[in-house]
Amino acid sequence: MSTLDTSPGRHRSRRLITVAVMAGAWLLAYAGNRPFWDLLVYQVAGLDPDSRLGSGLHFFVTDTAKIILLLAGIIFVVTVARSFLSLERTRALLGGRREGVANLVAAGLGIATPFCSCSAVPAFIGFVAAGVPLGVTLSFLIASPLINEVAVVLLYGMFGMRIAALYIGSGLVIATLAGYVLGRISPPRWVEPFVYATTLRGVPVATGQRLTLDDRITLGREEVGKILRKTWPYLVVGIGLGAVIHGWVPADFFARWAGAGNPLAPLVAVLLGVPLYSNAAGVLPLVEVLHAKGVAMGTVLAFMMSVVALSLPEMILLRRVLKPPLLAAFTGVVATAIVITGYLFNTIL
């Protein structure tokens, strides 16, 4: 049943002011997240920021709060935005023969969006729910943590323009091609049904249904609650694992097993990188140490890519969204592309 927008102008203004206040509170909470936990963990609790306990606990609480805020904010905005759009029109725009171009655009958007692997998942859920083709959305999911401007600047400072440019180019190619391949082999049934379902006050929203401003805000709020209830245990477990291994720097072990003398070095680098959890900027100091120890550039870049694009915490969180066949395909396609890139870089550098 359609709901006509007949609310008085004064009521509409109050609702807009409420939304503006909510947005301001969200921005304040997001901006103050790290300073708040810095104060609580390091000053009030007195934990050493250089200790495994202090850094691990700080990592856990900071990233949990950050990703929950991102999840809530992105899902709310995307849900309200898609309530104004035709689902079929969105799919037609980004699907079919234009899908390859859409994969490239999504990968470019991911590069411009400096999320870590776990915080990119909320955007992934929102895009899929909005009707963006699955493969296109996966291109965004791969590119967003894989490449960001901070990492590129640091990589340029450490190794020069050639390496930084090769890293950007290879990341863009991996995200575009992997998303395209996954879109071709992955049916929608491999995504958990709750991602596609949109309800308003417990009733499915019909295509073309006219909604009031109150309806749209309620829709966004309910969607946030639904997805948070579905994903929060996986989110906490994933970030908890990341906190446990946070700060683990296996430089000597890595150099021994993935050194220049091992023909399987890029493959070993990817296998070692997947359990870790960091963003590209955070793993770069280790990359510099490994390269100084004689590990080939292609191998260390493959390690860096696997850490930021295929972290174990991300896999745990994604499992709540993707069914096992798609999760396995995602991991296999991206890992294979990273290993091939490692060998290619070792050959040309």
Rank of each mutant, 00 (worst) to 15 (best):
A280P: 00
A123E: 01
S306N: 06
V195F: 00
H291A: 14
H11Y: 12
P263N: 02
S144C: 05
V224A: 09
A280R: 03
A335H: 05
R91Q: 06
P204F: 07
I67K: 03
P233D: 15
G183D: 09
R52G: 04
L16M: 09
A165R: 06
L57R: 09
Q209E: 15
Q209N: 04
V307G: 08
V153F: 11
A164Q: 06
R320Q: 13
E314T: 12
F345R: 00
T212P: 05
V173Q: 09
L235P: 00
Y277C: 13
I168S: 02
R210W: 02
I168H: 00
T113H: 04
G157Q: 15
A20F: 11
Q209A: 15
F127D: 03
S119P: 04
M161H: 11
V249W: 12
S278C: 03
A130F: 04
L47K: 07
T176R: 07
A102L: 13
L326S: 12
L104N: 05
A197M: 08
S55W: 02
D50E: 11
L322H: 10
L271D: 06
V150P: 05
G342D: 07
L317I: 14
V19S: 00
V101D: 13
H246L: 05
G179F: 07
G247A: 09
D214N: 09
I142D: 11
S144D: 10
A337S: 07
G294T: 04
G220P: 06
S186G: 15
G126I: 08
A280E: 12
G108I: 10
W232T: 13
C118D: 13
A81E: 14
G126F: 06
P35S: 06
N103F: 08
N33W: 04
F330N: 08
A258M: 12
T6K: 14
L166V: 03
S119H: 02
L264W: 04
G225D: 03
L94H: 05
H246I: 01
P188V: 10
A23H: 04
